[in-house]
C-alpha cells in the first residue's frame, strides 16, 4: 500500500490535489484526528526474542540470559470491570490510583452493572496483578469488586501509551519510531529522529522493517472530537456454547455483507474468557440507536445473554477509530477460510533480526 499522501488520497477520491488538501485539513480539524501506529501486540514476543537471542556467542550465555528473560517476553491484553459496593471514588482519586502504572491503557467510567472499565496491556499476569493490587490498595477506603479477564481475540484496537512501548525489549530505533509515531503518526521522520536522538535513515529503515514484519500494522487514527460521545459496551455472555458458535459466524458475515454501515459503530470487539463471551465497544449517534443495535444482535445471536453498559467518561487513553475496515480483522480471515466472505489479498509477514 502506498499510504495516504495527499497525492494518493486525491487519486483515490478522483479530486484535484488542492481540494483534497483542504478537505483533509477540514476532516482532521472537525474530528480531531490523531494519527497513531497500530501495533501487533500478539507478535511483540517474537521481536523481543530475536533481539535478546542475537549476538549470543556461546550456548551458556544464551541459556543464562534467555532463561532469565523468556518469561517476560511479549505482552498480554486484559479487561477489568470494577464495581464499587457503596460509594464511587471521584475522577481525581481514580486517576491518582492509576498513576505511575504502565499497565492501564484505557480507563472509562460506566453507568449500570459496572462502575469502571480498564483495558490493560501487561508483560505478564504477575505485572497485571501487581497493578490491580496496588490500584485497590490506593483506593482502600472504597469497597470494590474486581473482575479481570484475559482478552483472546480482538477486532479493532485501542491505542497504547508510550510508557508501555518504552518497557518493551525492542531496539532503540524501533521504540523511538513507535513512540514518535504515537505522538504524531503523520509527523516527519526527521522530526522524530531529532526528538529521540536517532538517525533519520535508521528510522526509515526501521519503519520498513517493522511494516514488513507486521509489528507495525499501519498508521491509523483516533478521533479526539468524535462525531458523538455516546459510547457504551455491549456484553455478550454465552449461555449455550453450541448455539452461540453457530450464530456467531452468521452475525459477522451479516455485518459485513448485509449491514456494512453497522460495523462503523463498533469501535472495538474482544473475546473474553470470564464470563465466556464477547465485549463490543460501540459509538452511537443517538440513544435510540442502541435499541436497534441490541434488537439486531438478539435476532441473530443465539445462546447468549446480551446487555448494555453506558460509558459516561473516559479517564485515560482513547477509544480507537470509528471507521475500522473489517476486512483487516482476524474474524474476517476466519470467515474467508470458511468461504463466507470474498477473499482479500494480503502481504506476507517477514521477520528480520
Amino acid at each position: 500500500m502506498e499510504g495516504a499522501s495527499i497525492d494518493s488520497i486525491s487519486k483515490h477520491l478522483k479530486m484535484p490535489k488542492a481540494t483534497t488538501y483542504s478537505i483533509f485539513n477540514e476532516v482532521v480539524k472537525e474530528y480531531g484526528l490523531h494519527f497513531v501506529p497500530e501495533i501487533d501486540l500478539e507478535d511483540i514476543w517474537k521481536h523481543e526474542f530475536i533481539r535478546i537471542s542475537k549476538h549470543k556467542s556461546t550456548k551458556r550465555e544464551m541459556r543464562e540470559e534467555a532463561l532469565a528473560k523468556i518469561p517476560e517476553l511479549g505482552v498480554e491484553e486484559y479487561i477489568t470491570f470494577i464495581k464499587f459496593n457503596k460509594e464511587v471514588p471521584n475522577d481525581e482519586e481514580i486517576l491518582r490510583a492509576l498513576s505511575n502504572f504502565t499497565v492501564p491503557q484505557f480507563v472509562a467510567k460506566l453507568h449500570g452493572e459496572e462502575d469502571l472499565v480498564i483495558y490493560e496491556v501487561a508483560k505478564s499476569f504477575y505485572n497485571l496483578n501487581k497493578f490491580l493490587i496496588n490500584f485497590s490498595k490506593n483506593l482502600k477506603d472504597y469497597n470494590m469488586l474486581v473482575n479481570t479477564s484475559r482478552i483472546v481475540t480482538t477486532f479493532g484496537f485501542l491505542p497504547i501509551r508510550n510508557e508501555l512501548i518504552d518497557e518493551l525489549m525492542l531496539s532503540g530505533s524501533a521504540k523511538a519510531l513507535l513512540e514518535g509515531l504515537n505522538i504524531d503518526g503523520r509527523g516527519e521522520i526527521k522530526e522524530i529522529a531529532k526528538r529521540f536522538y536517532q538517525k533519520p535513515e535508521l528510522l526509515l529503515y526501521t519503519m520498513e522493517r517493522l511494516k514488513e514484519s507486521g509489528l507495525l500494522k499501519r498508521i491509523t487514527y483516533f478521533e479526539a472530537q468524535p462525531k458523538s460521545n455516546i459510547n457504551g459496551i455491549i456484553k455478550i455472555a454465552i449461555t449455550n456454547e453450541s448455539d452461540f458458535l453457530d450464530s456467531r459466524n452468521k452475525w459477522f458475515a451479516e455485518l459485513i455483507k448485509i449491514r456494512p454501515e453497522e460495523h462503523l459503530k463498533y469501535v472495538y470487539i474482544c473475546d473474553i474468557l470470564n464470563p465466556s463471551g464477547i465485549l463490543v465497544f460501540v459509538n452511537l449517534s443517538s440513544n435510540e440507536e442502541i435499541d436497534n443495535l441490541l434488537n439486531n444482535m438478539r435476532k441473530v445471536i443465539k445462546g447468549a445473554e446480551i446487555s448494555y453498559i453506558t460509558m459516561t467518561k473516559t479517564l485515560l487513553g482513547n477509544l480507537g477509530i470509528r471507521n475500522f475496515d473489517m476486512r483487516y480483522s482476524n474474524q474476517y480471515k476466519h470467515l474467508e477460510l470458511e468461504g463466507l466472505v470474498p477473499k482479500v489479498q494480503r502481504k506476507e509477514k517477514k521477520i528480520r533480526a
Binding site: L13, I189, Y221, I321
Partner: peptide, 30 residues
C-alpha cells in the same frame, strides 16, 4: 448544484477519506 446536494456530496467524500486514512493514514518516506 443546490447547496443541500453539495453538502451531502461533501459528507460522502469526507467519509471515504476517513475510511482511506484509517486503513493506512501515513504517506510514505517523509
Amino acid at each position: 448544484m443546490p447547496k443541500i446536494i453539495e453538502k451531502e456530496k461533501k459528507a460522502i467524500i469526507k467519509n471515504e477519506m476517513l475510511r482511506f486514512l484509517s486503513i493506512d493514514g501515513r504517506s510514505k518516506h517523509r
